[in-house]
Amino acid sequence: MRSSQVLPENGPPRRARRALLSAAVLLLAWSAGGRSRAGYWGAGTAPLQAFFPTPGAGAARQATAKGAPAGELTISAAADLQFALRAVAEGFERKSGARVRLVLGSSGNLTEQIEHGAPYDLFFSADVEHPERLEREGLIVADSLFVYAEGHLVVFVPKGSPLDFGKQGLAALAEASVRKIAIANPRFAPYGRAAVEALEHAGLYPKLEPRLVLGEDVSQTTQFVVSGNAQAALTAESLMFAPGAQDRGRYWVVPPADYRPLAQAAAIVARSGKQPLARAFLAYLEAPAGQAVLARYGFARPEARR
């Protein structure tokens, strides 16, 4: 008898079904309209184009762009490159007429994605180990792997923070006012690994471990401080040059001798159908213009090239 209590059998379900059906019909009509109108309004201008991309649209854009190697490049990059690589990509877009799409994540996450056939042309890791793993698996173009920069670990604190790192170094994190310290997950994020090493080097790890909260990548780690939930973050120096970052807090560079160097490697993904364009991008990055941008975001030139 009570089986009907949870879902009444009369009225409402039938009405709901009718509503669902009409919604589906509406959606279908709209999508069909979108398809036919995309051509009518011209490629790229119709907002519906974004929802229903036609295979020819990319090619059309390629043909109209000026400069030799045009096209679209999809780059997967470690989260610490969020601002630096975007700046490099803008320069490259102006020079080549190609378009660059950036996909950001932790190096471990992106490596997993490439192992499962993600359609990336280039992979910029925040370490060397992950690209090397892909190299062993034959998933990147042989000999395309190279170390493009060296990243730096910083402590990032909110603007009004009383911590004095200049005087105390990392030991300032042991102050009682620091309740939560955000680091990237050391199991798959290189900066998280470096953060643990730096804390261990300072002899602070056992004491501070209960205060650690893990971000999925350096972006989330930094954002835990920006949102006012953690009192400090061990994160990437390159994110400190983001627009508006200076208004939110200040940072102190952890002595690079305290952790294994964050050499960062890039490689061309073997499945990429745009290898010449990918090579052009790497060449641009290695040229003085690209290197200057990286330097502006706190990246050091790697000492030894592979």
Partner: peptide
């Protein structure tokens, strides 16, 4: 914030394990 025993739930644990391969 993925803290073991405090906020690392099973679903987050699965995510971590997949990320770590």
């Amino acid at each position: 914030g993925d803290i073991p025993g405090v906020t690392r739930t099973v679903s987050i644990g699965v995510f971590d394990l997949v990320e770590a391969g």
